[in-house]
Design a protein around this nucleic acid. Sequence first.
DNA 1: CGTCAGTGCTAAAACCTTTCAGCCCCGAAG
DNA 2: CTTCGGGGCTGAAAGGTTTTAGCACTGACG
Lengths: 347, 347
Amino acid sequence: MTKRPTLADVAALAGMSKTAVSLVLNDRPGSRLSADAVARIHEAARELNYRPNPAARSLRLGTTGTIGFISDEVTITRFASAMIRGLLDVADERDQGVLIAETGNHPKQLAKALEFMIDRQVDGIVFGSMAARLLDLPPLPESMRVVTANCASNAGDGTYASVLPAEHEAGRAMMRLLLEHGHGEGIGIIGSAPSAPADRRSSVTIGARFAGIDEALAEAGATPVAVVDVGSWEPWNGYAGTKQVLESGAPVTALLCLNDRVAFGAHQALGEHGLRVPDDVSIASFDDDEIASYLRPALTTARLPYEEMGRKAMELVLGPDEPGGEHLVEMPVQVRGSIRPLDRSSS
Amino acid sequence: MTKRPTLADVAALAGMSKTAVSLVLNDRPGSRLSADAVARIHEAARELNYRPNPAARSLRLGTTGTIGFISDEVTITRFASAMIRGLLDVADERDQGVLIAETGNHPKQLAKALEFMIDRQVDGIVFGSMAARLLDLPPLPESMRVVTANCASNAGDGTYASVLPAEHEAGRAMMRLLLEHGHGEGIGIIGSAPSAPADRRSSVTIGARFAGIDEALAEAGATPVAVVDVGSWEPWNGYAGTKQVLESGAPVTALLCLNDRVAFGAHQALGEHGLRVPDDVSIASFDDDEIASYLRPALTTARLPYEEMGRKAMELVLGPDEPGGEHLVEMPVQVRGSIRPLDRSSS
DNA sequence: CGTCAGTGCTAAAACCTTTCAGCCCCGAAG
DNA sequence: CTTCGGGGCTGAAAGGTTTTAGCACTGACG
């Protein structure tokens, strides 16, 4: 193991100039070298197992074949890690590298990560977020390609492309599913309504989810028999909120939980009250978290399409066109055992 | 936004040579420049907001300030993603970048990722794995610093440092915990024994966990009243395995589950049999997975220290000394509500 | 006065690519 | 016989940094 072969080594072996080798290896159109020369160069490169030095290339070209991924906590927490899978898949297909950094929501960390990426001359940046928040981005170099995944940016002029889950559709679809199963008279909703629907900073998308739910209700002329605000969407809050509904005596036949963890808590509370899923109460929720499939019966839930958002974001940032606009990714409904048609006789 | 300032720009502004600027900015020991010159250079650099070009530096130095992280599925799946948190934390503290790639266990992908990292001249590589397997690594450049996290490599000569969870200790500790709570006469173990303890390729560490469990049993002269092999450690298998134990009529007072997902299934099976945790049956397990804290009562479990392993691995690869040897990271026991002392009267 | 040791600083090479500008030669057209 | 065009190829510069070797000067010492 001596030293990596360089362009000059290949040139020497092939008996040609560095220019010729570079031209051939990058098969530059318009450069006319004899077929013989081309063959000799390829042969020499193969023989030396030549691989170009990316640092030198970057220096000359100002381009790196690397995309930066900056997120609040995507890489770091388990919930959204599928997003990385999507990003990496696409990057790998196109032989691009991915440089990652996490900010933990500290603006200072964000600035540092950004500086780092720009210094390294990444060809583009994907910003990811766990909760679909509005991101405060400092001004970036004109030429930098930027896509935000599961979040939007403060650049209100639509400068940056954003990839978001189609929450409106999903909210509508889940509620309709419940209605179609005959639960119109006994629907409970577990999970807080967004405190200020216009507060895009805390969540860009949850408002849309609620709008979809409301739309489905309005279309059917139905009203929930219970709506409980549980604060943060954690299992213990779902448990408490559901308990509260049950103790109030509201005649629920189905629960729409705002995420799977809340649904998990609801499941526990139902169990303790001697109610069975789905025989006594149906449950529908959102996210398709890991636990959704662990429950017995497994949860019917609308999947947050992290992997697809990651793919889409990387495709946009690598794509031929300047990225821009809002891209919605479908939230597929995973139909499992937690919903059943309401027995007419019991109404 | 014109062009990034270069060393030459700083030199011109300070009225000094590029050499002087480089010397000062890297405060090279032994270079004697006048205090005045040093001040002028710093001032100029600050004024232009100069930041060195990493590509140029890499080209010259052959070093990149970047560590590669290659794993089978760590980044991609949720279970071990805390490992990345540890890696990134340390990297960030030391201003290092992290380049990631996933192999999905395909040797071809591994080769590609490796080639990529070597081309980019990363300063070191951390190999991670979800399941503590034995990794097949192709030969690497002599100078490359390598650490494996939650896995070992085939380089049997101990060339590469490895960071592993202290499974033996943890196995022993969990079993002792159960014994100390008076469950010596009624312990059931849910989860397969490793089919071939010597098969380091499928798991380098699970053997040690079982050895620890056995050691604690032997020390106390106790024998489990039931041991059930459930195949893969998933909730549904834990459920089935536990059901089998209960139906066999074995007088279990405590269940040691080989991971939290199995424990989750066990919890469900106990519930369906009208048994309560921990009043009727105690549960202990391993991993400290997300769901361990969702259960009611929450699970007492020995944590798989992914984050700490990530930290340790990055520290080793960045550390001053050539990494080497095996580094065990403690698996702390998270004591929660799922275990209670056995009522003497019931024995 | 010559030498010597510091002190303060710099020119230029090296790292490896890509690319602009241009060289030489040959055959064809004027 | 010149001019021209094009085919086949190359020299050298540029990109931004680090580092080696060494220059010019001053003051002290023999």
